[in-house]
Design a protein around this nucleic acid. Structure first.
Length: 510
RNA sequence: GGCGGCGUAGCUCAGCGGUAGAGCAGGGGAAUCAUAAUCCCUUGGUCGGUGGUUCAAAUCCGCCCGCCGCUACCA
């Protein structure tokens, strides 16, 4: 039986339209999912939308539509984003679905039964104008009145609220982090989370009475669940929970929750605490990636520089964008998305290094080997060295991918591609054609073999382009996973006419 | 304020106790199979500053300077 691998994107909040950041998270998860599938895992890849909460309720009201109608529309925009980015998710969950409400209610009931949730009251300085609570320390005084940073007047408000006994779980969380050093990545986030927990946890207010667009609290319809309790539960819902006979029940606990750095706390503190409190297994890993700036500036609506994934794909091509996102920046750090950097990667690495290597190799095969996979003769040390480097790729990449080291994994592949370019130059098969045809055949076969390994391991990042390259290398569709790499293709396999996979990007703006 | 991190070639970064590295950018050369792509060689750094530990420090410790993150109830 195959090992299970369950990866999730956050469910995207429908108060926003899909932008580069969403595409980034989803693409990273997609690469995880595709890599694991190629490596023989049984993968469940989940994405979806988070649709409850006051912001959504208000946004719908502003548009003059019912919340459900509003979320239907925005949710479909996220579905479309996934399609345009080539995301291979197995399910798309919406928190407004019946299955999800059922799972949330069940989780709530269990927490109540275990005494982990109690009815109390939430009190604080509330600004009616801002509809927000402020901490005492944020307030200033004017004419004897407390004033919020926004300038709004605040008043002391007490309202009933259910609370989760988060304060009981601090020590258990710390113990959990110690025992599972890989639970939070990268390490800098782990440090932050641990210091946050060490500073002491307060009980968490987990219901709201100030709006109604949410999942009702079982047995107390005046309250709706705090949106994060609702949202986090989606990961469980999608496995069919609480039905332990559901087809996907075996996927819990999740292998990896990919998140943006802004929502680490919810995933690395609240979520495991809720699960432990409910007596359920905790996810294996939470990884927080960084943000993109656009041409050196923060992406924001007011700057008008929000990048729509669809526009990028239309202009530069899907695989180039996916490659750039994962190659340009060490995953976990912030990075800058610039047109110049993207084009540089496209032309130097995709067109020149890889595309041109395939093209020059395959056109020599087409012209001088009758378009058939040539016979490999006796190997020289140079031949063996290149092949060994290519064949080591899955082994080298596995641990890197397991800790989301995408750019490092790609760097490993490019080391092999650069070595192959050096090899073809040194071996000069175009000269061997006149002096030693047998040797020429061996050199070309070593190169097509190397390219097959390279194209195979690059499929998760660039599925479309690598499918084309594997077509040209004569690799049948059922022989494109890692397990199939062990069996060389038959000599004489007929190859299609070579075609460029990565054209150079010529700037037409100039 | 507290806790944590970072500051290494023009740019992006790796190295984290043993005579400074990669990619890109710049310079020179080779080759001509290929998407004018490729290959080889090369310029360039007192590793933020300053004290200390050590036979030996970019690497460990102290202080200083400069950036950045976290420091809970919008999601």
């Amino acid at each position: 039986m195959k090992t299970k691998f369950y990866v999730t994107t956050p469910i995207y909040y429908v108060n926003d339209v899909p932008h580069l950041g969403h595409a980034y998270t989803s693409t990273a998860c997609d690469v995880m999912a595709r890599f694991k599938r190629l490596d023989g895992y049984d993968v469940f890849f989940l994405t979806g939308t988070d649709e409850h909460g006051q912001k959504v309720e208000k946004a719908a009201a502003r548009k003059g539509v019912a919340p459900q109608e509003f979320t239907d529309e925005v949710s479909s925009a996220f579905r479309e984003m996934a399609r345009s980015m080539g995301i291979s998710n197995d399910d798309f969950i919406r928190t407004t679905e019946v299955r999800h409400k059922a799972a949330c209610s069940e989780l709530w009931k269990r927490l109540m039964e275990r005494g982990e949730i109690y009815l109390g009251s939430y009190s604080g300085w509330y600004a009616v104008r801002d509809e927000a609570f402020y901490d005492e320390s944020e307030l200033t005084e004017r004419d004897g009145k407390k004033i919020a940073p926004s300038g709004a007047e605040v008043e002391w408000v007490v309202e009933p609220s259910y609370f989760f006994r988060l304060s009981n779980w601090g020590d258990k969380l710390l113990e959990f982090y110690e025992k599972n050093p890989d639970f939070i990545g990268p390490t800098s986030r782990r440090n932050e989370v641990m210091s946050f927990v060490k500073s002491g946890l307060k009980d968490l207010s987990v219901s709201r009475t100030s709006f109604t667009w949410g999942i009702p609290v079982p047995g107390d319809a005046k309250h709706v669940m705090y949106v994060w309790v609702d949202a986090l539960t989606n990961y469980l819902t999608a496995t069919g929970w609480p039905d332990n006979q559901a087809p996907r029940a075996e996927f819990w606990p999740a292998s990896l929750h990919m998140v943006g750095k802004d929502i680490v706390r919810f995933h690395a503190v609240y979520w495991p605490a809720l699960l432990m409190a409910a007596g359920l297994p905790t996810p294996k890993r939470v990884f927080a990636h960084g943000w993109w700036t656009i041409e050196g500036e923060k992406m924001s609506k007011s700057l008008g520089n929000v990048v729509a994934p669809g526009d990028l794909v239309a202009r530069y091509g899907l695989d180039a964008v996916r490659y750039f996102l994962l190659r340009e920046v060490p995953f976990g750090q912030d990075g800058d998305f610039s047109r110049r950097a993207l084009i540089s990667r496209m032309n130097n690495e995709l067109a020149n290094d890889l595309g041109n290597l395939a093209q020059r190799t395959l056109s020599l095969v087409a012209r001088h080997c009758e378009g058939r996979l040539p016979v490999r003769g006796v190997l020289t040390p140079e031949d063996s060295e290149l092949l060994a480097a290519a064949e080591a790729l899955p082994v080298k990449m596995r641990p890197l991918i397991d800790r989301q080291g995408f750019s490092e994994a790609l760097e490993e592949v490019w080391k092999v591609i650069r070595a192959a370019n050096a090899y073809i130059d040194h071996q000069a098969p175009w000269s061997l054609r006149k002096t030693d045809v047998v040797r020429m055949a061996t050199v070309l076969r070593v190169l097509t073999g190397t390219l097959r390994w390279v194209a195979t391991v690059l499929q998760p990042v660039m599925p479309g382009s690598m499918a084309k390259m594997l077509d040209q290398l004569g690799v049948p569709e059922n022989a494109r996973d890692f397990a199939a790499l062990g069996a060389p293709l038959p000599d004489g396999t007929v190859l299609p006419a070579p075609q460029g996979v990565f054209p150079r990007y010529v700037d037409d703006a100039a």
